[in-house]
Simulated scan of single mutants.
Amino acid sequence: MINETDIKHLDRCIELATMALESGNPPFGSVLVDQTGAVRYEGHNETAGGDGTRHPEFAIARWAAAHMTPEERAAATVYTSGEHCPMCAAAHGWVGLGRIVYASSSEQLSTWLDEMHAEPSPVATLPINQVVPGVPAEGPFPVLAEAVRDLHRRFHSEHKTGNRA
């Protein structure tokens, strides 16, 4: 169940996604919160330089593997503006991170990008639990998803690109 703390962290993810957009990257932002409620890592998409793996969720998984115990990772929550892609979901599962809360779903993003006539994604659009069965995943949330949709509209109108990374 989503609560005020979840909304606060999802709002921060949308701020980070806006920062990504303003730096020429597709609008995705994510935050890692430990079991005490402390923000341990935050980031946004950095794929504009040509490395399509520079997703914030992937960076969170790598950071968590290097800086947190397995128990701390399992008790942590990853908040993100958009549901993990298969690459990021797999990284999440491999390092044993816990709950995922996302503002907008991969299915929504796929629909929005089709409406914008963007090129198809180079990887399949799959729900998190198809990649990592059993990880607690919550989302999307309609009010927040609309803000994410607006960021994607801006990105694709400003960049005229099919890059979904």
Rank of each mutant, 00 (worst) to 15 (best):
L16R: 09
H117Q: 13
F155P: 03
G24K: 07
E15T: 11
S30Q: 00
A147S: 13
E83C: 05
E42D: 06
E83A: 05
R153A: 04
A124N: 12
W112H: 07
L10N: 11
P140V: 03
L32M: 06
I2C: 09
E115F: 02
D51S: 06
E4K: 14
T5G: 09
A20Y: 01
L21M: 13
W94I: 13
E107K: 12
S23I: 02
E15V: 12
G98S: 03
P122N: 13
S30A: 13
P27H: 03
L16M: 02
R12Y: 01
E119N: 10
W112C: 04
V135F: 01
G50Q: 07
N129R: 15
G93F: 03
D11K: 14
A38Y: 11
H152A: 09
F141L: 14
R149Q: 11
R12M: 06
N45G: 10
V132C: 01
R40K: 14
R154D: 12
A147R: 15
M87D: 11
E15Y: 03
V101K: 04
E107I: 10
P136S: 10
D114P: 05
P26E: 15
A118N: 05
G52R: 14
C88H: 02
A74H: 04
A145R: 07
R164A: 12
E138T: 13
V135P: 00
G52P: 02
V33D: 08
D11R: 13
Y41T: 02
H67I: 03
D34T: 02
M116I: 11
A59D: 12
P26C: 14
L151P: 01
E158Q: 15
D11Q: 13
P86H: 03
V33I: 09
E22A: 08
T53L: 08
G134N: 10
A65F: 04
Q35M: 10
Q35A: 15
M68T: 08
P56Q: 01
E72T: 09
I2W: 08
S106K: 13
E83M: 05
Y41C: 07
S157R: 15
E119Y: 11
V143D: 15
S157K: 14
N3M: 02
E107P: 05
G162A: 07
K160Y: 08
P86S: 03
V78K: 05
H9N: 12
Y102E: 11
V78S: 01
G139K: 02
Q108S: 10
A118C: 12
A89D: 05
